[in-house]
Design a protein around this nucleic acid. Structure first.
Lengths: 205, 205
DNA sequence: CACAAGGACGAACGATCGTGCGTAGTACCC
DNA sequence: GGGTACTACGCACGATCGTTCGTCCTTGTG
């Protein structure tokens, strides 16, 4: 209902919307996507609770819009920096962009999707579905880069691209958790070492 | 305060306490440790809200006790099955015990600590501190097993035990997330492959 | 310029949250 | 076996939650 795209929107409303969503995604990595409250969100952006509410129709509408907003942020900070690289270089570029995305506090509580998916994976509904879809898309992105690297002869064709994508993402996922906990580059450094070593072993003979 | 061990406790209270805590830990992996409500917890165990409350003194007291309870469950299901193994066999035993612990739904929402730590890593306080301490202890357990394996000559002494523990835990951590999302052995199977391969590469020449 | 429509507001709602209090019942120690 | 202290309860509190409503203001269109 709130996701009805045919709804006409004024320019000022669109600005408020995106300002709210940016703050919502940031807040969600600290308090959780479910623990996010309309009232707190409203006064961190300097609006009334009902004003925020009406822009999204319901809390679920706000959550869905927040996931979409976070998706754009992820695309901008992780996918785009690797947009011009191909094959093995693309794998490295995606990994390094992800590290930067975590280290530079794009979201104060680390990767938005790591926390949101963990929080909502046991709570059925459209929000969970959208988060799961994102994870699959991201894993697909990594696997596709691996396949590209195989096609260009940089990675052993005997490697299973999905398995390699799993291993890379596992390192990224835990690196994010470790960085959020310790606020230290150690976990990221270990993940980098993990991935470099694994990619080295996967290099075509 | 509620953790004051000098407080005398009756047998029936102790039974209620552990029954409540078992349910609390299970509920927390579904609704979150923060989203857990006294009222819902009370009537899933068939008690009054105030009855539950007084046993723990505060919500934070309940959360701390829940973490301790979940720690015991983890020890029982993961540490104990590997208690009699040493060195490399101990590493494998810990990993397999963890897989069983996740796959058999000891907690309905997967590993308690994976979800709780992700949820609370940005919320300072004693609960977070206890969860972080658990993670360090668990990583230390893995690293100690690796060192044992090096001492018995099963793993290359040039390997960094902490790095290896990081890589193993990364696979376990993401396997848990994947299993909770998909309810399929696929993620666990991939993690098993990841770890077996990595340990194979770490085998002393 | 006028008018339809979206944006933002304040106030209020029912529900639920964690917490405090007074009290009745009961297990355990001397 | 009596008395103390823990167990468990019902009730009520203030706060906060998501949501609804009526109203005023502003924007964009014809």
């Amino acid at each position: 209902m709130s996701a009805n795209e045919s709804r006409r929107r004024r320019r000022d409303g669109e600005q408020s919307r995106s300002a709210i969503l940016g703050e919502a995604a940031r807040l969600a990595t600290v308090e959780g996507l479910g623990g996010l409250s309309l009232a707190r969100l409203a006064d961190t952006v300097g609006m009334s609770k009902s004003g925020v509410f009406e822009l999204f129709g319901s809390k679920e509408g706000l959550q869905l819009a927040t996931v979409d907003s976070a998706t754009s942020v992820f695309e901008e900070h992780v996918l785009e920096p690797a947009a011009n690289a191909n094959g093995l270089a693309r794998v490295h570029a995606l990994v390094e962009a992800f590290f930067r995305y975590v280290e530079t506090d794009v979201f104060p509580g680390g990767c938005f999707f790591a926390s949101a998916l963990t929080e909502l994976s046991m709570q059925p509904g459209p929000v969970r579905d959208r988060l799961v879809a994102f994870l699959e898309r991201w894993l697909g992105e990594l696997a596709a880069a691996v396949r590209e690297a195989q096609a260009e002869g940089a990675i052993d064709p005997a490697e299973d691209p999905d398995q390699l994508a799993f291993e890379i993402e596992a390192a990224l996922f835990f690196a994010n958790a470790g960085f959020v906990v310790a606020r230290t580059p150690e976990a990221i450094e270990r993940a980098r070492r993990t991935i470099e070593r694994r990619l080295g072993a996967a290099t075509a003979a």
